[in-house]
């Protein structure tokens, strides 16, 4: 064996792994990007052009709206919950049970979550019926649970725990000395939050919100189980494009829509990484 070959041997050990990921991760990803520029087996921009269609744009916008709303609500409530937890004892039962529960609940999504809310607020849901029988109010209304409002509410269920998980370390990084130093320099509680805690936590808060946004934007299963008719958001439009041959006159629209999603997620995640780099420098 020549020297060069021998030096290659260690790298050869990675071949199974790299081969596997090439087939099941890289090829699919690349084929999405390439497929977006193909129509009827020929290079074409017609799918990309179809992204400008009013239906697609409106769906994209609704997706963004849903993701932003659930991210902001989740971020605010999650931050409050995280604050309620860090102000308790650091080794207390409360803190441990809340963080464990959040670790579990942040993973809780999809069909089961959709059904949980159907069992709660669906037409014959437990809370809906209780509202009808006890209070005489119709919580079901005209089926808002199955629209964007309902999705926002249901998404909040996994967004809040996720926020707690990602935001807690930043709150933990706040030192009591900062509060006390500010106080002894004459700062009121409000001034402390305005000049010290606020600016320190803001990048982490915004970063976490972006992460929540990406999380909601990518979510499919929950919405698929909840919304069986129509395609109010982008992932459901992709479902539609995948299951029916031709949508908006295009056979490869699913690829273009998927590319659309990749672009949004990459932009959001890049901003997230930039923001987090900033805080991790402060809150060490």
């Amino acid at each position: 064996m020549s020297r060069g070959v021998r030096r290659l041997v260690p790298v050869l050990g990675l071949v199974p792994f790299l081969g596997y990921l090439t087939i099941f991760l890289l090829i699919p990803t690349v084929s999405v990007v390439v497929g977006a520029f193909v129509e009827k087996d020929r290079a074409s921009l017609s799918n990309i052009r179809a992204l400008g269609d009013e239906v697609v744009l409106r769906t994209l916008w609704r997706s963004i709206e849903l993701s932003a709303e659930s991210a902001i609500i989740g971020a605010v409530l999650g931050a409050l919950l995280a604050y309620a937890v860090v102000t308790g004892r650091p080794d207390g039962t409360l803190r441990r049970s809340v963080t464990s529960a959040c670790g579990v609940l942040a993973q809780f999504g999809g069909v089961t979550l959709a059904f949980a809310f159907i069992a709660t607020l669906g037409f014959s849901g437990v809370v809906t019926e209780a509202g009808r029988d006890v209070l005489g109010v119709d919580l079901f209304g005209s089926g808002w649970l199955f629209g964007l409002k309902g999705l926002t509410l249901v998404y909040t269920y996994f967004q809040i725990p996720l926020m707690v998980i990602v935001f807690l370390p930043s709150l933990d990084g706040m030192r009591s000395q900062w509060r006390e130093a500010a106080e002894s320099l004459g700062a009121s509680t409000w001034q402390f939050w305005r000049y010290v805690a606020g600016p320190l936590l803001l990048p982490a808060f915004l970063g976490s919100t972006l992460l929540l946004f990406a999380n909601a934007f990518a979510a499919y299963a929950t919405a698929a189980a909840l919304v069986s008719q129509g395609s109010p958001i982008l992932p459901l439009l992709i479902r539609n494009a995948l299951t029916s041959e031709i949508v908006l006159g295009q056979s490869h629209l699913a690829f273009a829509l998927a590319l659309d999603m990749i672009v949004v997620v990459v932009v959001v995640m890049t901003m997230y990484a930039l923001l987090l780099r900033r805080t991790s420098r402060w809150l060490r």
């Binding site: 006390e180 500010a182 320099l185 004459g186 700062a187 000049y195 600016p199 420098r281």
Partner: peptide, 29 residues
Amino acid sequence: SANKRDMGMVFQAYSLFPHMTAQQNVEFG
């Protein structure tokens, strides 16, 4: 209350506000 006492305090460590420069820290009060 502490913020009305007009006392200067120096802690053991890590009490500088990390998002402010030395000058901004000093100007804070």
